[in-house]
Design a protein around this nucleic acid. Structure first.
Length: 542
RNA sequence: GCGCCAGUAGCUCAGCAGGAUAGAGCAACGGUCUUCUAAACCGUAGGUCAGAGGUUCGAAUCCUCUCUGGCGUACCA
């Protein structure tokens, strides 16, 4: 519908030159009597033309060559809006397109040929994935899906660090538990990883090696075993919520490849790194930032900035056009350093898109749950998925704007009832499948020959919303706003349920019934496609 | 102190590519199944869009300030 209007204004521009070169905003009015689409261009032109906006609007309307099969009515309203009402015939045509494209409907090829890498989760393997990681995981995977829908070839990647302090602590923790397991009476330090999984890993080592590891370095067999067990578990957890990473990128390889040294050398070459107080500093003040930061500590260990820069360079080198990073809001102060580094080394930082999401507050029994991996005070993703299922978990994490704090109410998520919004969408899909089974039993088929019979308000409203799917997917993907898809689907489902309440198929005159079946099939396709973008199942019965 | 995010109905949140009378779900109240799934639909009630200025023909939406909450502001990641 919007495309048609854009064309209409483009050709009107030939007669009214002032229409050329200005952007035509096409809006959906909130009030039904204001038509299907509305344009405010006349009001924007008052200043330039020094004329009353309603006069301008009238002049524009007169210049249109209207096809009456498409546009039913054009009128000037309010302070100078131009309101368009489309014919039912035109509006319902979308059904043919949807039924034609099926699971490709909503996809676009705007970015085809482009490659994107989405880095997400990226948790160090010190413990199981918790509900705290959930929002990151679901945002990353859903954004990846959306990018695929607009043409990108997307690789999902998990970046991790198996060196460093946290992992050292992990090895120490396992060793302590092991010593306890082989009978040593020692006290387990309070600041070590407290989780039960550490005890289990230690038990495994005891079963395998007996007490022969008493003198083993914590960073040897202990750390290796822990990392192995925990990573296997993390992969399984991701799999449980339908996430498949293409790569797990180990920070360590950046050292082995000499990439870390390379970055240092290049920064020094550009006079952007210097030594002071035993450490190596990154001269961020040179790049317009507030203060210089340490990139290599006096201990000789780099800070996160250095490997992060080196890692991102590999992404450019691997040929990605778009580099998406999904981070919690606690990273907001750190990534600009990395971007500045990339830019200084000649990489286009505009290709990096950092998605920052706000933290999740977990509510259980009406209370806030404070989580910490080290203190073993957490709810794991697996526990949650076992209780409520992958669909509910994914939906809860994606249904809100990522820039807003999210309350995750575990008790609400557990309810298999109408209080749980994900069922609203799935129920619409299941209801449709059930209807279609029934019409099939009655030997009724869909037909695209009489779609113009779909004139009831609930039919027209549903069709109008179906028109917007492709645009919605494109806009959501380009703006990295996955929650919009969830909102859109809730609207489609609501319109469908209303249609269901008002319009019947069985017992209706044949050609209208056939048109309605077509509408229902089209709706099913859109709901199913939308659910698939969100990584949710589309159940055929509930 | 400085920076980022947020503040919209009792609760959880949409809306924020400036538009006409601010929405949904839940919770409350009332109605709708002898015919396609009542996990649904219809209706009632509920608001100083945190507050104050400003820009504009027009502001929940953009700008400034204030207040409140979250997160940062490391030789942790």
């Amino acid at each position: 519908m919007k495309k048609y209007l854009s064309g209409l204004f483009a050709s009107a521009g030939k007669k009214l030159p002032y229409l050329n070169g200005i952007e035509i905003n096409i809006d959906v009015p909130k009030i039904e009597s204001h038509g299907d689409l509305s344009v405010n261009v006349a009001m924007l032109l008052t200043k330039v033309l020094k004329k009353n906006p309603r006069e301008i609007a009238l002049e524009i309307i007169e210049s249109f060559e209207i096809d009456e099969d498409i546009i039913e009515k054009v009128e000037v309203a309010g302070p100078g809006f131009i309101n368009f009402t489309f014919t039912s015939q035109f509006v319902s045509k979308i059904i043919s397109e949807i039924i034609n494209k099926v699971d490709r409907f909503g996809q676009s090829d705007k970015y085809s040929g482009k490659r994107a890498i989405v880095e997400f989760v990226s948790a160090n393997p010190t413990g199981p994935l918790t509900v705290g990681h959930g929002r990151n995981a679901v945002i990353g995977d859903t954004v990846s899906n959306m990018l695929e829908w607009i043409g990108y070839e997307v690789d999902r990647e998990f970046y991790f660090n198996d060196a460093g302090r946290q992992m050292r602590m992990l090895g120490d923790s396992v060793k302590q538990r092991y010593l306890q397991a082989v009978g040593d009476e020692i006290e387990f330090p309070e600041d070590y990883y407290q989780g039960q999984y550490i005890v289990e890993i230690a038990q495994c080592l005891k079963d395998e090696f007996g007490d022969s590891l008493r003198e083993e370095d914590p960073e040897g067999e202990f750390k290796a075993k822990a990392q192995d067990v925990i990573f296997t578990d993390i992969k399984q957890t991701l799999n449980n919520i339908k996430i498949n990473m293409k790569n797990f990128y180990n920070e360590k390889s950046l050292y082995d490849d000499g990439r870390i040294d390379d970055v240092i050398a290049k920064l020094k070459e550009k006079k952007l790194a210097y030594e002071s107080e035993g450490a190596t500093w990154f001269k961020l003040t040179e790049l317009g930032m507030d203060q210089d930061k340490v990139i290599i500590k006096s201990s000789g260990e780099p800070t996160y900035r250095l490997p992060d820069i080196a890692y991102h360079i590999t992404k450019y080198e691997r040929g990605y056009d778009l580099l998406v990073d999904v981070f919690g809001s606690d990273h907001h102060a750190t990534y600009p350093d990395v971007l500045a580094g990339l830019q200084a080394l000649g990489f286009d930082k505009e290709r990096v898109k950092v998605l920052l999401y706000q933290f999740v507050t977990i509510l259980k029994d009406g209370e806030v749950v404070k989580m910490s991996t080290r203190k073993a005070n957490y709810i794991t993703m697996d526990e949650l998925v076992d209780e409520v299922g992958s669909d509910v978990v994914r939906y809860f994490f994606i249904m809100r704007n990522m820039s807003s704090h999210l309350n995750f109410d575990i008790d609400l998520a557990k309810k298999q009832s109408d209080e749980n919004p994900v069922f609203y969408l799935q129920y619409a899909h299941a209801r449709i499948c059930s209807m279609l089974n029934l019409t099939k039993d009655e030997s009724m088929e869909y037909s695209l020959d009489h779609l113009e019979l779909l004139v009831a308000p609930s039919e027209k409203n549903l069709c109008k919303k179906l028109h917007k799917f492709e645009e919605e997917v494109l806009f959501s993907a380009e703006n990295f706003e996955p929650h919009r898809i969830a909102n859109y689907l809730e609207e489609i489902a609501a319109l469908f349920h209303r249609f269901y309440a008002e319009c019947r198929i069985i017992g209706t005159e044949k050609s209208l019934a056939e048109a309605r079946i077509a509408l229902v099939i089209a709706t099913r396709i859109v709901i199913k496609n939308g659910l698939s973008i969100l990584g949710l199942s589309a159940p055929e019965r509930m």
